[in-house]
């Protein structure tokens, strides 16, 4: 069996709030996500799903345990290397879009390219392709404040896709959208999953949204209490 994209072994995350007060958020998470899976991580607020997402996204370090991204132990890597991993292997989609307000849609999509190593002439064409994929090529020169919420999220998805990452990590991507545009964004994820075989990890508190995905991992108080696809993935 091939190496999973995400392999977490006994991940523990503890926050130190002054010496005696240790707050353990994640109590030994074991999770594997294989290539091409569309996984949703569901949990109430306070369940530790944001903390887990930060660790999966190489934004934060686990206190103990091992996290392998595409077989690489990212926990022990330097800040520099982790930046490069985020840049090339992870595509973030945030709840509040996190587009840069002063840059237009095209520039926003090109930001990850700016922080990458390679410099190619067709960067602009590539960014336009991404915008076309999410149906936003007409709005390439618009700034975020000239776009609707759904349009912003589509630009953000184009930005997440530009470096052809190993996983798309979407943190409540429909949280700031009405249900109709939310569905449009979800459809886009399905499209990426089905047509391009992208590995997508969706973090949400909505069971309705989670039910659209193949596999639902339920988190409660820092532990995985249900995982309907774990067996299937391992079998």
């Amino acid at each position: 069996m091939s190496e999973p994209v995400i392999r977490m072994e006994n991940i523990i995350k503890t926050y130190y709030l002054g010496k005696p007060n240790e707050l353990e958020i994640l109590h030994g998470i074991n999770l594997s996500v294989h290539e091409g899976e569309f996984v949703s991580i569901v949990g109430e607020s306070g369940s530790g799903k944001s903390t887990l997402m930060n660790i999966i996204g190489v934004l934060d370090r686990q206190t103990s345990g091992n996290y392998y991204l595409e077989g690489q132990d990212v926990g022990g890597m330097s800040d520099e290397v982790r930046s490069a991993i985020r840049n090339r292997r992870i595509g973030f989609v945030f709840q509040n879009f996190n587009l840069l307000p002063r840059a237009n849609a095209l520039k926003n999509v090109m930001i990850p390219l700016m922080y990458g190593k390679e410099r190619t002439r067709d960067q602009k064409e590539r960014a336009m392709e991404m915008l076309a994929m999410v149906g936003m090529e007409e709005r390439a020169t618009h700034r975020p404040n000239e776009l609707s919420g759904g349009q912003k999220q589509r630009v953000a998805i184009a930005r997440a896709m530009i470096n052809d990452p190993a996983i798309i990590l979407a943190d409540e991507p429909t949280g700031a959208l009405d249900s109709k545009t939310g569905h449009m964004v979800m459809d886009l994820f399905h499209k990426l999953h089905e047509e391009q075989g992208k590995t997508i990890v969706l973090i949400t508190h909505s069971h309705e949204l989670a039910s659209e995905t193949q596999r639902i991992v339920t988190l409660l108080d820092g532990e995985i209490v249900a995982d309907n696809g774990g067996e299937r993935a391992c079998s």
């Binding site: 520099e80 985020r86 840049n87």
Partner: peptide
């Protein structure tokens, strides 16, 4: 934060 998340080094 966004820039760092998208791969900007310190």
């Amino acid at each position: 934060g966004v820039r760092m998340a998208l791969g900007a080094k310190r």
